[in-house]
Design a protein around this nucleic acid. Sequence first.
DNA 1: TAGAGCCTGGACAACGTTGTCAGATGCGGG
DNA 2: CCCGCATCTGACAACGTTGTCCAGGCTCTA
Lengths: 349, 349
Amino acid sequence: MPDTTRRADRLPGNRYGNRPTMKDVAARAGVGLKTVSRVVNGEPGVTPETERRVQEAIDALGFRRNDSARVLRKGRTASIGLVLEDLADPFYGPLSRAVEEVARAHGALLINGSSAEDPDREQELVLALCARRVDGLVVIPAGDDHRYLEPELKAGVATVFVDRPAGRIDADVVVSDNFGGARDGVAHLIAHGHRRIGFIGDMPHIHTAGERLRGYRAAMEDAGIPVEDAWMSLGVTDPVRVRRAAEQMLADPHPVTAIFTGNNRVTVTVIRVLAEHTRGVALVGFDDIELADLLQPGVTVVAQDAAALGRTAAERLFRQLDGTLLAPDRIELPTRLVTRGSGELPPAD
Amino acid sequence: MPDTTRRADRLPGNRYGNRPTMKDVAARAGVGLKTVSRVVNGEPGVTPETERRVQEAIDALGFRRNDSARVLRKGRTASIGLVLEDLADPFYGPLSRAVEEVARAHGALLINGSSAEDPDREQELVLALCARRVDGLVVIPAGDDHRYLEPELKAGVATVFVDRPAGRIDADVVVSDNFGGARDGVAHLIAHGHRRIGFIGDMPHIHTAGERLRGYRAAMEDAGIPVEDAWMSLGVTDPVRVRRAAEQMLADPHPVTAIFTGNNRVTVTVIRVLAEHTRGVALVGFDDIELADLLQPGVTVVAQDAAALGRTAAERLFRQLDGTLLAPDRIELPTRLVTRGSGELPPAD
DNA sequence: TAGAGCCTGGACAACGTTGTCAGATGCGGG
DNA sequence: CCCGCATCTGACAACGTTGTCCAGGCTCTA
């Protein structure tokens, strides 16, 4: 007597919980395996009557094509990976969403992971994505050495770096004009009469932070203002240390009259500090923040367009996949100075 | 003469761009296929010397295990799917991140997609994830009929709904106490002397919106205040219409003295409207918003813990996968009233 | 030194799908 | 009536991996 227990009657839990396969559908519909495949994929060459029978069996069994097997056979996964720093950061949400929309328009799924700004975790994630054979990768790098990606690039994994350039490999990159944006922001403060301007930002070896610092220095130099060490606080992003740094700048015998902040997290903390001060200290921040216009005063920022970064990168990625893109290139998107009040305060002294 | 062109020398683009396989590694190392598999997976039973040779071949060829094939063979993908409304919404970023962290702790990757609040797109996404044979699904539903998931559930795909319950199927669900939170928020306004209180929220058929509306009504009823139609604006979330709704409530001959807003997007818009008004109108919003404490006045909110929602759901998902979880259940997480000023304003008339 | 037992390595099938190719069927024209 | 052609269908191999199982070589003991 043959094994008459139906698959679903056996113990659950092993192997996808025993899903029906095309073979099962074929048996039930009384057709060949390949015919089912044809129906599932909408290929031509199937009589309406046959198609109906197959469709019926599919519905009855609750069949769902196994894309893992499909991928194995076809070689394209129709999925791309996105590695960013932290999805919970309001800067990355729109970026991720923009990448997703472009992927969707190309019929691809997006798999994303957060590196938590840890180079090892970035590599781990990227390689996990490669093991899943994503067709392409959008990477916001945490590390500064991406030679581990060389085999992948050689193997044809499309790759675009965003927000910061790749380290030690030649790859497409889409960045904001961090240098120019910061320079303009600081120049804006200078134009409003400030000369003692503080800078609080992340470690300069992080590309964006370094560029923004360079922009700060350039603006000061253009105006012929020598920068004092006490005005600069580098490698500081956690609220406690930002607070301390800001308070020190303001407590100095010759306090700064304005502060330029290097990213949204720093900006938020500095806003809190300034809110406790009576003396009006001017502020320009890099990155826009929600509700910035409703604060008193409104917060002047150098805004970058996160969605545009994501969209541009994703589009470039798919052009790589199309084959319509040749040499790696560097694309720089402009920033925009949004004046809302805090950057237009005159020096308090 | 045999074909001596190396795989990598052929046209790129077809089949993962021609990656080396275990077979290639085995050939190069002069060992059997299974031995390579053993080394790659850290299985015992390989001499150090053999292992070294294999590892060398792996590095030389840039071999990376193909997880699609692995999945096909093993039946588990070590990945879970998350379907939410919009990653760009600050409420979902932390939620997604929390799910990711739990997944990571269980060695799983997270694939997420945005439904854009469209039931069809939700279904499309969920089914795409199932086709990829994710081990489990965390779903923030957009639609209200999830019977299409029945075959998946039967097939053993672990599933947890978050933020809103599943429609017409029996599944695990983790939600905030929307009813209680809204009731407390409105009661807070009543306790501060308000009787004419407006409500602006989403369509009541959306579960969260419906529950919050119910909470509003309950608080009013508890206080013996009959609710007037003009105080309620339902199904309104886009800024233009929210603004109009708020302005109407305030322009009424008997204007409301306080407004309860049903979600973060509505709250933000209403804050803008109130900022233009001189008369102090009290406000309590559902969902916390960044910088709410720095506005004048600070914005009192009913905060839900997005990260806790995600974490709880993901943990439950993995308990389903472990088999340590049996019957579907409903978990309700408490909300927290955060008083910051706007909800404590006295009635203006 | 023979035999038992262990350790290492490899041949083979299977996972579920799709591409290839050839067989079957039906139809019209010579 | 037969042949050719078009249309539809199915058998089979292959994708890259892992589980099963067996073979061969080694060590250890009696």
